[in-house]
Design a protein around this nucleic acid. Structure first.
Lengths: 231, 231
DNA sequence: CGGATACTTGAATGTAATCAATCACAGTGG
DNA sequence: CCACTGTGATTGATTACATTCAAGTATCCG
């Protein structure tokens, strides 16, 4: 019932080649691109501020989060290399984007993107498809936060991350977690302790191993999939 | 920090006049419309099935929900008169739409809507804006499900409902709840008992009154707003 | 008015949160 | 190279709170 979407927000097949800043002919969007870097924890944009740019992650990871005044935090999305963000609508963003570790992004001026979408229906279609995918993704996550147990949530998270890479994970893929346990907790609506205990639980059950704190070996992807599907 | 969006998915200002089936000249979308009725509990479309139509609620209420195989359910959205649904992307819907009580909807054939959007950039823009609003709404709800307490969740729900009507609620608006306590529970990620107890709690605190089971009088909208904002 | 359903309330349980300490690890400087 | 230090992660003990199980009560409909 719960199906994981691969590559949640791939807007196209732009395999940005390394660090070449030259616009790629095939993609009019890429002509608008420029690079930017952010340090660990730095805000890329803030909820409520006027949105001036759209982004694509090139290197590193980004979190999109909401914050309550008493410090409670929820991370709505993690963005990894290849993911686009900040493309939603024209108004001010409702989420804050922050760098997880050093991050490198491509930046597209919002006005130019909008103008391009006006002229080029194909671009408009791609932007629309992107937002639709994000919505589907968010809806799946509502079920996770509203009705799933901690082990189910963690399995969901790990598989989502694994499928982003697109790698076959049937032969014990090793997953690299760029984010902290606190980030994972804030993504899954749990505390850091519960995330830790749940890692330990899944380890004891033989579903995964933790060779390093930031590395996860998925020992039994099928069992994890069953968990993540909630049945 | 948590801002409620009024009229979450108003696609236009189509003030559909009662039961007139005639297409309205000003709106090319309306030319595609036809009517349909559904009985209480009836599925309008099912997650996974091919999407053939888009909808607008005319009368009654609709729930969009996910279901796990063991019966756990989460309602992602409630749709009320004036709300559009089923407009997301071209693929199969990820949520099931069900009638809450007898429902009357306008139906737009998906193919025709897509074709219209191809020809008419203004329509495409409206569709895009609609999906963006839904995404923003879903992101706000992630925070609710992931980090808020039961009273906060209920206050959020009630205000969201109140603001849908667009009425000024400063002078004790009476709210009509078309859905059951179980529906509210499945929307807020709680059990039916917790929803009930939370109603009682807010009643004791003087924030609201329940003249009938389905009617809520918002006695102190400001306090409710503070609760819903989580601070 | 009767019966069914939906909602509320109560008591007990279980689970995740909290509070607190220990452990592992990366980075630094001796 | 290795002890030292600070941060982040894990583990343990306790608490708080929503869930579960179980009556009771109100409401709606025929």
């Amino acid at each position: 019932m719960l199906t994981l979407q691969g590559r949640p927000q791939a807007l196209g097949q732009m395999t940005t080649p390394g660090h070449a800043p030259a616009p790629r002919e095939g993609d009019p969007l890429q002509a608008l691109a420029n690079r930017a870097r952010y340090a660990d924890g730095q805000a890329i944009f803030m909820a409520g501020d006027e949105a001036v740019d759209c982004f694509k992650v090139v290197k590193g990871a980004v979190r999109l989060c909401s914050l309550l005044s008493d410090g409670r935090r929820l991370i709505a999305h993690f963005l990894l290399p290849g993911d686009f963000f900040g493309f939603k609508g024209v108004a001010a963003p409702s989420l804050t984007a922050e760098a997880i570790g050093p991050v490198e992004v491509t930046r597209y001026p919002r006005r130019a993107v909008a103008a391009l979408a006006e002229r080029d229906p194909e671009i408009a279609r791609r932007l629309h498809a992107m937002v639709c995918r994000q919505l589907t993704r968010a809806e799946a996550q509502l079920l996770v936060l509203g009705r799933m147990t901690p082990p189910e949530r963690l399995a969901y998270f790990l598989l989502e991350l694994a499928e982003h890479g697109g790698q076959e994970l049937d032969q014990g893929a090793v997953l690299d977690l760029p984010m902290s346990r606190q980030d994972i907790a804030d993504y899954l609506g749990l505390t850091i302790e519960t995330v830790s205990r749940t890692f330990t639980l899944l380890k004891r059950k033989g579903l995964l191993a933790l060779p390093r704190q930031q590395h996860v070996l998925l020992r039994d992807p099928d069992a994890l999939r069953d968990l993540a599907a909630g049945d």
